[in-house]
Amino acid sequence: MTGPASVSVPAAALSGRNGERLAIVGILLGLIIAWEVVVRGFDISPLIFAKPSDIAVAMVRGLRSGLYWEHLGITVLQMVIGFMIGASLGFALGVVISEFGRLGRLMFPYLVAIQSLPKVAVAPLIILWFGFGIESKIVVVALITFFPVLINTLSGLSIVDAARIDLMRIMLASRWQTFAYVRLPSAAPTIFAGLNVAVVLALTGAIVAEFVGAQRGLGVLVLQAQANLDTAAMFVILIFLAMIGLSANLGVRWLERRVIYWAQRRESEQ
């Protein structure tokens, strides 16, 4: 969807200098004006391509009427809860598997099998099981975010710095202490890479699940707008989705900077 693609550019801009930010805003304004001019000049049908002005009007009207807020809230709620459940379970299982190697070897073939399945294809089944309410969406989001976090937790914890492990052995550290003081912090950057992937997938999962079957949510609104041939409304929702995706991504990055403070220290030193 548009979420992931539109995320990276503004994210980089936000971390840049003021001049760069101005330039980004300028480019955005330029694009919007060009868009307006092209749609008007070539007299493109509003069914195919809405003018920025129409989109702005639709957005203001929708926000005033309160139509969007509820749906937006539902989608964000499903995404956030699903992400937290999926990421926690993925992390927890990753830790268990890497700590108890035997169990990991037993489970691994199943995990690979499930992992290679496109999770959105399971959405209809999950909606059959959990109904049209928000529970089924949460399950889909959790399922879709679970794997990248699990895989990255496993690969992060498999990094073993022999010198650090020797240090812990010399200190007579317990298994738990070695985990808390060395293995987990060593794995943290890789785990966060997984969370960054998962948060983008979470929004995709929520929207696709809403497409498959839901009463409320931005995915439902997209389908309704499509049925009503309301192109401007579809664009409005796409803008909302991009904003949600961007905020979620920035949120995870913010958390990452706070948790992995030492990586940043090394960067600033360079």
Binding site: A163, R164, D166, L167, I170, Y181, V182, P185, Y261, W262, R265, R266
Partner: peptide, 12 residues
Amino acid sequence: GMIFQDAVMLPW
């Protein structure tokens, strides 16, 4: 006690 060749320090 043991001191390693490259003073293993934990960056966190």
